[in-house]
Design a protein around this nucleic acid. Structure first.
Length: 614
RNA sequence: GCCCCUUUAGCUCAGCUGGUAGAGCAGCGGACUCUUAAUCCGUAGGUCGAGUGUUCGAAUCACUCAGGGGGCACCA
């Protein structure tokens, strides 16, 4: 028997046999892990691979739960007889519950809770359908109500296995009880293991939909398919530490089902956007992420280097100029959904790499795109949230803030906003001294080299933000802040451009495209001028882009939508880190950095310690 | 880059003005044949983020550094 007094010896034994546990590994080895590594070895010793890949589940939890809701007979407690088999099962005969014919099924997943109660065991299993499970359980409650049954807890994301020792005593004892074993005497199955079971669906006395594990000639009632040697967090409190949640998303996704739900929504948003644009004859493309010159946005870049060509490269800050080359080439409706990289500060709203949708449409103006964007966003809200109203952030009094995303959206000129919210009169709007004075009064910091237009925009964004909670298109931007946008025909001082704000944050930016190559060349030249004056966020002169425009780009409008921020709105997340699976974090302390030679830190695996399946 | 908060067992957290560490869950041993945060009995588990200092004595006080969170600045 393995007892506590022998623990030190057993540890030494494990270190002998387990290359994973060799001192010097950068990963910690606590007592719980040593135990689990011993259990892993015990499975090898018994001739059972703890990492077998020969089990095929026939059903997911959701499919099982749908079966339970598919027939009024299945809604109440019952025991099951295998389809086509005689009723000779002892447990069935001894039960006074209704009998239902059920198919033999195989189910698999991660054990999240194990409850051994004498000679029966209950195991809660999480599989890929977990995010959908609550909805199916809620649907069953509707059916139960119709026939007068009390509702059941619908939140549980797991499905239950029921194991009675009588059905397979050897397996039951080895997995859940203390027995004699070569390298481990205790139960071999732990919370966190991936397990696979076979048997018949039934409903327990308390009404829980369950799989009654029963062996077959082909295999035992229950098997460990992957031994987990690292313990999961507390089953009740779960994983709360924000840092661990982000660094170890695999644990976060296992323990926190609302996280799984956010990324399911993210996937739906991406699918919905593609469907919307595909239906309107847009073509999805992929353009380079590595650029030789900067353009398409005002932002600081990441720099990298190509060895063979011995040349510097930038990670792209925007795909805009490539997409418009494609419009020149005749792809009149084109879009790309992909990552941009900007070398700027991190915040609740900013990640160094973020996903952007950009789409371009020939023979359209920025006004056409306003209509298209508000239609897209209201449709997405309906598809993803089931309603056009979302709850995001909180009001001044702390109550949840409800935002209506149904079209149409308000449209506000920058000048009108400045007059209304910054209390400036018409004359002051074009007077730099007055604007700077007002900015000073409002505590808005301005660059010394900021131009009149830039001051107008910055002042606007500072005073308008609290008023831009409901979706609002802001338009009539000064020309010098938008070097790629088309000037307004009646007033060349402004460009035909809008930004869409929702919940006080910028979601979208769009404009009618400048397609006069001469004008475009001059605006690039202006950018170089501003750079000479110290503005670091200017664009390079992209001469090939000017050449493309010289061939002629059809009149067009283009739009960018920050997908991460849109997902935030639709999922209620207030930090961009919550909607990015692996947001940027500093390297963990105590582990080797990305540039370190990690190969040298990991000792070679000794041969012959465990069966090698290859 | 600046300011504030935070880091204690595998997880979630206590630990008061300085006296060398606690609970629940998980683990291990035992009881229990329909539980669902199962229950009951017993038991083990810690370089208190790292370092330096003050002190007879530091999880606790001071300083430095690191990670994380929030805010400012920059930006989408």
């Amino acid at each position: 028997m393995f007892v506590a007094a022998e623990f030190g010896m057993a540890m030494a034994h494990v270190f002998d046999i387990d290359p994973l546990a060799i001192a010097g590994s950068p990963l910690e080895r606590n007592a719980l892990m040593i135990q689990r590594l011993s259990k892993r070895q015990a499975l090898w010793d018994a001739g059972q691979s703890p990492y077998a890949n020969d089990f095929s589940p026939t059903h997911t939890a959701v499919q099982a739960l749908r079966w339970f809701a598919s027939d009024p007979l299945h809604l109440q407690s019952f025991v099951a007889t295998e389809l086509g088999a005689a009723v000779d099962d002892r447990s069935v005969q001894s039960s006074d519950h209704p009998r239902v014919q059920a198919p033999r099924v195989h189910m698999a997943g991660r054990a999240l809770a194990i409850n051994v109660k004498g000679k029966v065991a209950f195991v809660r299993v999480l599989d890929r359908s977990a995010a959908e499970v609550p909805a199916v359980r809620a649907h069953e409650n509707v059916l139960r109500e119709q026939i007068g049954l009390p509702p059941r807890d619908a939140q549980t994301p797991t499905f239950q296995f029921y194991f009675s020792r009588d059905d397979d005593p050897a397996t039951f004892d080895r997995l859940f009880k203390t027995t004699d074993g070569a390298s481990w005497d205790g139960p071999l199955c732990d919370v966190g293991d991936i397990i696979g079971g076979q048997g018949l669906w039934f409903r327990t006395r308390t009404g829980e939909q369950s799989l009654w594990l029963k062996p077959s000639p082909a295999g035992p009632a229950l098997r460990i398919l992957t031994k987990s040697v690292r313990p999961l967090p507390d089953k009740f409190h779960g994983l709360a530490d924000k840092e661990t949640r982000l660094r170890q998303r695999y644990v976060d996704l296992t323990m926190n089902q609302d996280v799984r739900e956010i990324f399911r929504k993210r996937s739906q948003v991406l699918r919905g956007v593609r469907q919307f644009l595909d239906d309107r004859d847009y073509v999805e493309v992929e353009t380079p992420m590595m650029h030789t010159s900067l353009g398409g946005a005002a932002a600081r870049p990441f720099r990298t280097h190509h060895n063979a060509l011995d040349m510097p490269l930038y990670l792209r800050i925007a795909p805009e100029l490539h997409l418009k080359r494609l419009v020149v080439g005749g792809i009149e409706r084109v879009y790309e959904i992909n990552r941009n990289f900007r070398n700027e500060g991190l915040s609740q709203r900013h990640n160094p790499e973020f996903t952007m949708l950009e789409f371009y449409r020939a023979y359209a103006t920025f006004r056409d795109l306003m209509d298209e964007v508000e239609t897209l966003i209201s449709q997405l809200a309906l598809q993803v949230c089931g309603a056009t109203q979302v709850t995001w952030g909180s009001n001044a009094d702390g109550s949840p803030r409800v935002i209506e995303l149904a079209a149409p959206y308000a449209r506000v000129r920058i000048r009108d906003g400045l007059r209304q919210w910054a209390q400036l009169d018409e004359a002051a709007l074009d007077d730099e001294t007055s604007l700077r004075k007002r900015a000073l009064e409002l505590g808005v910091k301005l660059d010394a080299h900021a131009t009149l237009g830039k001051i107008q925009v910055e002042l606007f964004e500072a005073v308008a933000e609290p008023h831009l909670v409901a979706p609002t298109f802001v338009w009539e931007y000064p020309a010098e802040t938008s070097p790629l946008a088309r000037s307004n025909d009646a007033n060349p001082a402004v460009v035909d451009r809008f930004e869409l704000f929702i919940g006080g944050i910028e979601i979208s930016n769009a404009f009618s495209e400048l397609n006069d190559p001469v004008d475009q060349y001059q605006r690039f030249a202006q950018q170089l001028d501003q750079r000479a004056k110290g503005d670091e966020e200017t664009m390079d002169l992209d001469i090939d882009y000017v050449r493309a425009l010289e061939y002629g780009m059809p009149p067009a409008a283009g739009c960018g939508i920050g997908i991460d921020r849109l997902v935030m709105l639709l999922s209620g997340a207030e930090s961009i880190r919550e909607v990015i699976l692996f947001p940027h974090l500093r390297p963990e302390t105590g582990t080797a950095g990305p540039m370190a030679d990690t190969a040298a830190a990991i000792p070679p695996v000794a041969a012959g310690n465990s069966p090698d399946p290859h």
